[in-house]
Design a protein around this nucleic acid. Structure first.
Lengths: 130, 130
DNA sequence: TAAGTGTATTATATCACTTAATACACATAG
DNA sequence: CTATGTGTATTAAGTGATATAATACACTTA
């Protein structure tokens, strides 16, 4: 596993997905899990780019999407900071969860599984989400 | 909704995903749900391409993946037919379901949801998968 | 003033996807 | 045998998203 740590956050990047989406998802995950404190500064665009060995523009793209979701606030000349509003984090977290659920149910629905079948499958694997 | 019907199967294509994947998924869905009978012939590559207004090569790509999964058998000069082996269909159906479950649990796990939380969310929306 | 922030711009390269145009091998109806 | 309809292969071209590179500018702080 090609694992890198930048600013206290772990990153695993591959080529199966756009890099900016992976960076976005993994920073967001750190925020959602509370692995990074509210109000805390995250690495600068250039730092992150160097640490991950990718282009600053690619990091920028991820950072801008974080700000669009109001998970971060950027202060010109200072850096990018996690929001101090815990309600924002909660909201985004549940929004993303709901999207995942909808997509999941749609996919299983298209395969002809009923709700109770889905529940049964999940019960047999449910131990995996901590 | 840009809906088209070809060979008794409904198709909705958009630009959010590769066309060949959408065709693949929607034919597969028809098979999994039993909307199309085992052994039945599906539209020829050219027919399907014309009906969906896409390139024959794109349809080919979808059809070849169906055959690789052994959901179809192709007979040169005759056409493409749904497998007569119901066990094959069952197998693929569960494989796809399992993949979807794993992906889903991984995603919610990365958002810091526990198994019981996932179960709770699903219970509140479970009515949607038939 | 210098160094470190976010941000914008322009250019280039690469890759997946899609289309287009042909051509070939095979099966079947006439 | 011929015509038509199958799957299949090949080559070429175009498009769009992604990523990199190089540079510049506005702002903050030590």
């Amino acid at each position: 596993m090609n694992e890198t740590t930048v600013g206290g956050m772990k990153f695993v990047l591959d080529l199966s997905q756009p890099l900016y989406e992976q960076v976005l998802a993994q920073v967001r995950s750190s925020i959602a899990k509370g692995e990074i404190a509210l109000g805390e500064k995250i690495p600068s665009v250039r730092e992150m780019a160097q640490g991950l060995k990718i282009n600053p523009n690619t990091v920028m793209r991820a950072y801008q999407e974080l700000e669009r979701d109001q998970l971060t606030e950027t202060r010109r000349g200072q850096g990018t900071f996690i929001t101090t509003d815990s309600e924002k984090v909660r909201t985004i977290r549940y929004r993303l969860a709901e999207e995942a659920v909808d997509e999941f149910l749609a996919k299983l629905g298209s395969l002809g599984f009923t709700a109770s079948e889905v529940a049964a499958i999940l019960r047999s694997k449910g131990g995996e989400a901590r």
